[in-house]
């Protein structure tokens, strides 16, 4: 069974990672290196156990485009999110024994130093049959 683990961030979170001066405390090179090392090791374990299907990070919300139709023609808005809005920052798609195992994996993505941080994990539909019945 497949599960999607979703990580979130705000533009402000990305700014801290990008070294942009702000009211929030900056991250040191060592902290950033530790974060990368942790992510690498979690994904490596999942690859070795065969549970990793895919994992990607997304660029900052400011680079997003929102596409609507107006009178049948596409209209594009650049950077549709507010600075403090939580948006999808990345995902890891796993295939594992069950929801409890997926939850156990998801817990490893939550930063213990960041108070209030969370990730979401959702079961993925097994195929068109689950939609159409």
């Amino acid at each position: 069974m497949k599960y999607l683990i979703m990580l979130y961030g705000t533009q402000q979170d990305y700014d801290v990672l990008a070294g942009r001066p702000s009211d929030r405390p900056p991250m040191s090179p060592e902290q950033i290196a530790a974060m990368h090392a942790h992510m690498e090791s979690v994904h490596k374990e999942l690859a070795e156990s065969g549970e990793l299907v895919d994992a990607q990070g997304l660029t900052a919300p400011v680079h997003a485009r929102r596409v609507r139709l107006r009178g049948g023609a596409p209209v594009v808005t650049d950077g549709p999110y507010a600075e403090t809005q939580e948006v999808l920052a990345g995902y890891t798609l796993v295939e594992c024994a069950g929801f409890d195992r997926a939850t156990e994996i998801a817990a490893r993505f939550v930063n213990p130093e960041a108070e209030g941080e969370y990730v979401d994990v959702r079961p993925v539909l097994d195929g068109i049959a689950e939609l159409q019945g």
Binding site: Y14, L17, A18, G19, R20, H63
Partner: peptide
């Protein structure tokens, strides 16, 4: 330059030089 970059590591470098 940092504003136009999508690469976080590149942005860190550029912000550090600006600082």
């Amino acid at each position: 330059a940092a504003r136009r970059s999508m690469n976080l590591a590149q942005q860190r470098y550029l912000h550090a030089r600006a600082a």
